[in-house]
């Protein structure tokens, strides 16, 4: 049996005594698509912060490709192959769409290489390809700050893919998107899984259902339940803390 791509072991994070995460365990295998849901304050974003090195856990270990990530700098973790999309779109607003993507696909990411070398043809092709995936070819030279909210979300996802990571951490990709855009995003993420491992955090149940993948429910910094969407929705504990009862059930 091959070892998992990412493994979180007994992670606890304490902010001045408040436990944002407690004894969190999670395993992701190569090519998995996984959704994480949970009420506000369940520690969803903190949990991404721990993986990407923004927050150091008080206790526990993060194993990625059989090596621990604890104590590594954010940019090193990013170079090892973990890409992260933030909750609100974070792109370089004063650069054009193309320039944003160029920074994502550039390799090696050292000052000298950026200054001396021009972008390789294969990277230029990659930029075109990325823009075609997210339908931004016509906006190539437009300032990214002038894009619509949905387009910014997609640009950020495209930048993420451009980094060619093994693991994509996607935080609320459909917040503020229209239904149509939400569906397209779900299809996009599904198509990325397989080649990449994708972890999605979201509130939108319809969107999670569409992803059609295993779901972990986070509650008070702990994994409450793991399983398929239909299992989760039947679980009385999950219903109580998160999903709530529908009107019919209450009657």
């Amino acid at each position: 049996m091959t070892s998992p791509l990412l493994e979180l072991k007994q992670i606890s994070v304490s902010f001045e005594g408040f436990l944002a995460l407690r004894d969190l365990n999670l395993v992701l295998n190569q090519g998995d698509l996984r959704a994480v849901i949970g009420p506000n304050g369940a520690g969803k974003t903190t949990f991404l912060d721990v993986i990407t090195g923004k927050v150091a856990p008080t206790k526990g270990d993060v194993i990625f490709k059989e090596k621990s990530l604890i104590g590594q700098k954010e940019f090193r973790i990013a170079r090892k192959g973990i890409g992260r999309k933030f909750q609100s779109p974070r792109i370089f607003e004063n650069l054009s769409v193309q320039e944003n993507l160029a920074l994502a696909v550039s390799r090696p990411k050292t000052p000298l290489s950026l200054l001396m070398n021009s972008l390789k043809v294969k990277h230029l092709d990659q930029i075109q390809h990325l823009m075609s995936i997210v339908n931004l070819q016509s906006k190539a030279n437009i300032r990214a700050g002038a894009l619509s909210h949905g387009q910014k979300q997609w640009l950020e996802i495209a930048m993420l893919v451009g980094q060619d990571p093994d693991l994509l951490l996607v935080d609320e990709p459909v917040a503020g998107l229209t239904d149509e855009e939400t569906d397209l995003t779900a299809d996009l993420l599904k198509s990325l899984a397989g080649d990449h491992t994708v972890l999605v955090i979201d509130h939108d149940m319809e969107f999670i259902r569409r992803l059609d993948c295993p779901v972990s429910v986070l509650h008070q910094g702990h994994v409450l339940k793991e399983g398929s969407m239909s299992d989760i929705q039947k679980d009385p504990l999950v219903i109580e803390v998160y999903l709530g009862k529908t009107d019919e059930e209450e009657q």
Binding site: K73, F75, F92, L103, L114
Partner: peptide, 25 residues
Amino acid sequence: RDRFGNILIGIRDDEARVRFTGYNP
């Protein structure tokens, strides 16, 4: 002129994003 300058602008606009894109600001 090129990507080095764009990274500088990136640092000005959103340093965390630069870091998570794999650059050391």
